[in-house]
Simulated assay, not measured.
Amino acid sequence: MWGDEPQLKILRERIKLLLKIHHADLAPVKRHASQGELLMHQGDPATSLMLLTSGKVAIQIRLLELKPHTLAVVEAEELLGEMGLFGTGSHSADVRVVEGPAELVEVSGDNFLKTLLFDVDLAMEMLSLVSQRCKSSNMVIGLLLDGIAAAYRGDTAQMAAIANAIRPLDYCLSLASDRLVELGKSRA
């Protein structure tokens, strides 16, 4: 799901350029994180933005189940923490290093937001990125809801078609649609 947005490559380059141009104002800090380390905790205040420069992280959400659900696994060069920074002010998911060690560049959220005032194009690209991620999530959620409806009807052909539609969009969530297919088969 994440990492395939068309504007992401441009955004990555703009952020690197922004870090160079506004280095003194942003005061970026290089961080190293070992495998298994939690970089962001769901519900905690979003106080920084990170650029993953090496390694892989999992974006995980915990709701009612004890075990977290993995929404995405992303690798360098991925932006982390922007949703909490621009949204509610808190992280909506955990971000954990799953293949490390990971290297990151961390910037204070306040410094980043102040710097955006000087680069309207970057601000628009950030909004576009967040919007694209929301659209992609909405599509996957809609397909999962269609899958639940198909499972309720016992329509295994529709459930299989939905699982196939989700697979290229998001590998991690495609596992949930595969479970729906299995559920439908067991009902038949």
Rank of each mutant, 00 (worst) to 15 (best):
A165L: 06
G3F: 04
W2R: 11
V120P: 11
R62D: 13
R133T: 05
A149L: 14
V120I: 15
L11D: 00
T47L: 15
V120R: 11
S128H: 02
L113F: 02
K30P: 12
H69G: 08
I148R: 12
L116W: 03
R14E: 14
V107A: 10
V105C: 04
L173T: 05
G147S: 13
F112Q: 04
H22C: 13
H91T: 03
A24Q: 11
Q60S: 04
M1V: 11
D146P: 00
S108G: 13
G154R: 05
I61F: 08
N138S: 09
A157Y: 00
K20C: 07
V105D: 11
K185H: 07
V98G: 07
D155W: 00
S137A: 07
L180R: 01
N164W: 06
K114S: 11
A123T: 00
D44V: 04
Y171K: 05
L64S: 13
A123S: 07
E106L: 12
S54E: 12
L49E: 07
L51W: 01
L173P: 08
L113D: 05
G184W: 01
I59S: 10
E103I: 06
I21V: 14
I59Q: 06
L145S: 08
P28L: 04
D170A: 08
Q132W: 12
R153S: 13
E13L: 15
L175H: 12
G3L: 01
L64C: 06
K20T: 09
R31C: 12
V140P: 06
C172Y: 03
M50V: 03
H41D: 07
K67H: 07
Q60A: 10
A150E: 12
Q42F: 05
E106G: 13
I10Q: 12
K135E: 05
T47E: 14
E75M: 02
R187A: 00
I21L: 10
D44A: 15
A160F: 12
P168G: 08
T47P: 10
F118M: 04
C172V: 00
V105S: 10
D94Q: 05
K67A: 09
L180C: 08
T70W: 01
L51Q: 06
V107Q: 03
G184V: 01
Y152H: 02
T88E: 11
L17Q: 14
V73G: 03
S48W: 01
A176H: 14
L117V: 14
G87P: 04
Q158P: 03
G109C: 07
S186N: 06
I148Q: 06
Q60R: 01
S137K: 00
A24F: 10
W2L: 15
L63V: 13
L18A: 15
E37H: 08
S186M: 10
L11F: 05
N138R: 05
L18M: 15
A161Q: 03
L51R: 06
E5N: 02
E82D: 04
I61D: 05
V57Y: 00
S90C: 05
L180F: 09
M139T: 04
L175S: 14
S54R: 04
I148T: 09
L79A: 09
M50A: 12
C134D: 15
H41E: 11
G147L: 09
S54G: 07
H23T: 09
A161E: 09
L64Q: 12
H23Y: 06
L144Q: 06
Q35I: 13
V107P: 03
K185S: 00
L63Y: 08
S137M: 10
V130H: 02
V97I: 04
A123P: 02
R14L: 08
R31P: 10
H32L: 15
